[in-house]
Amino acid sequence: MQDEKLNPSDETPKPEAGGAEPEFDYIDAEELDRLKAERDEFRDKFMRALADAENSRKRSERDRREAEQYGGSRLARDLLPVHDNLRRALEAISDEQRAQSAALIEGVELTLRELHNVFGKHGITLISPQPGDQFDPQIHQAMFEAPVPGTVAGTVLQCMADGFMLHDRLLRPAQVGVSSNVG
C-alpha cells in the first residue's frame, strides 16, 4: 500500500472524547443577546452570593471574637459584689483587730489580690478614681454633688464604689461624689 496524502477537505471531523460528533449550529443575534443577558444575570447572582458568603464569614468571625472577649461579662458582673465585700471588710478592720487576726486578714488580702489577678487575666480592669480626678460621665456615675470649698467644679470628691471595664466595655461605672463649686 502506498501512503496516500489526504486532501484536508476530504477529512471528516473526528468524534470528541464523549463519543458525540461536534455540532455546529449558528445562532442569530437575538439568541446571542439573550444568552449574554443570561450570562450577565448568572454572573451578578454569583458575585452577590460570593459577597454574602464573605460577609457571613466576617460576621461569624466578629461574633466569635466578641463571644470570646465578652462572653463572661455576666459572670464578671456577678463577681463584682464579691470584690466590693472583700474590699469593705479590709477597710473596716481596726489596728487592734489587725494585730489580733493577722493571719485571717492576710488571707482576705491574698484572696482579693488573687481576684484582681483573675480579673486582669480576663481583661477586667479596675476604675478607681481618686479625689481631685476629673469627673468622666463615660466611666463615672455621680451619686451626689456638693459645693465643697477649695475644690473645682466637676472634680471627684469621693469614690463610694470602684468601677470596672471589660476590655473596652464598661461593666460598672465608678460611683463617685462630685464637686459643684463654681470657683
Score class of each variant (00 low, 15 high):
A76I: 15
L166G: 01
A174T: 04
E106A: 14
G72D: 11
S73K: 09
L115N: 05
G18C: 05
H83Q: 05
V82E: 06
E30Q: 01
A174L: 05
S180H: 08
L171N: 00
R43F: 03
P131D: 06
A92T: 14
E66F: 13
Q175F: 13
H122C: 00
I105S: 15
Q100V: 10
A142P: 02
Y26C: 05
S101H: 12
I139Y: 01
D3I: 13
E38G: 01
M143K: 06
E54M: 09
P173F: 06
E11P: 02
A174Q: 02
E23A: 13
S9E: 13
S128Y: 00
L75G: 14
R48Q: 04
A142R: 04
C159L: 12
G132W: 02
D63W: 07
E30S: 01
K58T: 10
E61D: 12
L32H: 04
H83F: 11
D52H: 06
M47F: 13
A103M: 11
E145T: 13
F119G: 03
R87L: 15
E106V: 10
E96P: 04
I139K: 00
Q130G: 05
E31S: 00
A51P: 12
V148Y: 04
F135I: 03
A99M: 12
H140E: 04
L112W: 06
G120Q: 14
A17L: 12
K36C: 00
S9D: 07
A17Q: 08
N55E: 15
L90W: 15
A67Y: 11
D162R: 03
P137D: 01
L104C: 03
T12F: 10
R74M: 10
D63H: 05
I93K: 14
V176P: 03
P8E: 09
A89K: 08
A67E: 15
L110R: 13
L6T: 07
A51W: 09
V182L: 09
P8F: 07
H140G: 03
G19H: 09
P131F: 06
F164C: 01
F24Q: 02
P131S: 05
E68K: 10
Y26W: 15
L86W: 10
Y26D: 09
P149A: 00
T151G: 02
K58E: 14
L170M: 06
I124P: 04
L90H: 11
R169F: 01
R39P: 01
E4M: 02
G123C: 08
G177T: 04
G18H: 04
E61Y: 12
R57V: 14
L112H: 04
K121N: 02
D3V: 15
A142H: 05
K121G: 02
T125W: 04
Y70E: 03
Q141D: 06
R88A: 15
S101R: 11
E11I: 10
